[in-house]
Write a protein that binds this DNA or RNA. Structure first.
Lengths: 210, 210
DNA sequence: TGTACATCAGTGAACGCGCGTTCACTGATGTAC
DNA sequence: TGTACATCAGTGAACGCGCGTTCACTGATGTAC
């Protein structure tokens, strides 16, 4: 059997097997090593050629999710670079949700493990959300909507927003018949948070100048 | 041994054992029946006297969490009934976070299972957040901050906010050394969302009257 | 007040099963000379 | 270009263990008469 395996590396196949199994809300730490190996088309001992234990596979999985999600955001930004809409937010949101439909695994698994048992997974996800938020802040089409707002305040709001959008993306993926409603709601939340950040900053500035 | 057990009912002890075991981020569906019974000080077969399987215990657990959380909110509102502060939000938030510190299990387990594997748990939590949001909407000290805002819009914003506050309460509980910072951040998020809901509604009203 | 009986919530023993992990082994691939 | 060898990624068999579940049984409690 050894040489009849697809040319993909066993390590990668184990990572993808774990993503497949976690996909429908299975908690990552409830997966079995034999089960993952089976899903990957490998024998159980082969697992130990690549990972020490379940937690170290978990680390690899979260790295993979992180890379996927950040790459997706970069692609979305590049793809919309030429769109000079008055408001880029609906475009970015729509593209992100559509990407989630095409690539549901990192989204669903990421959201499920945001409060999961593996500390590393939680930290990794938090870091990813922060990276994305900072990335978005630097886009003038976004920061232009919040003129004068210090980057720190902007990042804080965008991090909370990113987390909420991640969770809403899961709903979007999982309930196709309500996608329009979920998109509209997500857009309203985005609008509320931007408007709020703007209004509070304006108020502070006003108070400070009096 | 039968009669030497504490007078508490076995059913309740199983529910509390499950909460104890889920407490530190263990996914509920990764718990074992033997393990839960052991934690409850019962033999494994005793589990089946009270529950058909793990999922039906899960239902009982989510009911318990729901009752705890809603009771907490009611108590907080009653306790603050006489406080006629200009802004009741910091008081409510502080009291909610403090309650979470005293009663961490329903908060931590509830947040962990918000995206867990048991459909019933996710729905139960969603329902709880909605109940609380509607409850808060009806408090004039809150709705007075958003004059003229239709209840539906208010509920939508408050639901999102409630979910975020639940997640932040977990951080508050788990990282005691950063509680002040987390509280401040939570309060800023509350401020942003209220200000945003207010600003957007004002904008809509203005547009409609032109 | 007794007594017979049903019900309820617990028990320990036993079952077969899949698990994590280790072991010795295999065959392909890369590398030194 | 060969050849010897190390390394790497896989295998099946085997281990002991804890799991979910069922079973017959027990003793306390409530109830009908």
């Amino acid at each position: 059997m050894t040489s009849s395996l697809p040319p993909q590396h066993g390590r990668q196949r184990l990572i993808e097997a774990a993503l497949n199994l976690s996909y429908h809300r299975r908690s990552f730490s409830s997966l079995g090593i034999r089960e993952i190996a089976r899903e990957a088309g490998l024998s159980a001992p082969a697992f130990y050629r690549h990972f020490e234990d379940l937690a170290s596979l978990g680390q690899a999985v979260i790295d993979e999710i992180e890379r996927d999600v950040i790459r997706a955001f970069t692609e979305v930004r590049v793809a919309t670079a030429r769109e000079a809409d008055l408001d880029i937010r609906p475009v970015l949101l729509k593209r992100f949700f559509d990407w989630a439909v095409e690539n549901p695994k990192p989204i669903v698994v990421g959201a499920s493990e945001a409060f999961g048992s593996l500390e590393k997974m939680r930290q990794g996800l938090k870091k990813t959300l922060r990276t994305i938020s900072i990335d978005i802040c630097t886009d003038p089409r976004i920061s232009g909507l919040l003129p004068g707002l210090p980057q720190q305040e902007m990042t804080e709001v965008l991090e909370v927003l990113a987390q909420n959008m991640l969770f809403m993306a899961v709903d979007y993926v999982e309930t196709p018949q309500e996608r329009d409603a979920i998109y509209d709601k997500a857009l309203r939340i985005v609008g509320v948070m931007f408007a709020g950040a703007h209004a509070i900053h304006a108020l502070q500035t006003e108070n400070a100048s009096n």
